[in-house]
Amino acid sequence: MIESPSGFWGPVVWIIAAIVALLIAYFIQRRGEKAYKKGVQSETFLMGNPKLSEGETHVKAHNIYWGFFEGLKKYYVPTITAHTGIINDHLIWLIAGIAIVMIILFVAGGI
């Protein structure tokens, strides 16, 4: 158990609670539909269209969260543009970093 300024964390208590929750979920699942036939109801149905091949039904990584990236385009376009991959640019950031930190420390120190 670890204590923070306003609480505590005990993983053993959490694990016991999780086991109880899982047992309840299992109990509910056991009381479910008895007539379910595996492999029949779970078949893909695409509005009567022919079934796609296995590779075609898998959602590719670049399609996931497409809406998220579209919604945050104003953030993503300049951020990705800044990642040029050119080492000269990385070193310019380094020089700018030195200048900014030095100015802050000098101003804060009253020098």
């Binding site: 590779g55 590719k60 969260y65």
Partner: peptide, 17 residues
């Protein structure tokens, strides 16, 4: 969310030929 994306992309889904 991002690790779920990687998990879905690499490990789940039908076996690719």
């Amino acid at each position: 969310a991002s690790f779920t994306k990687a998990f879905q992309s690499a490990f789940t889904g039908p076996q690719l030929p």
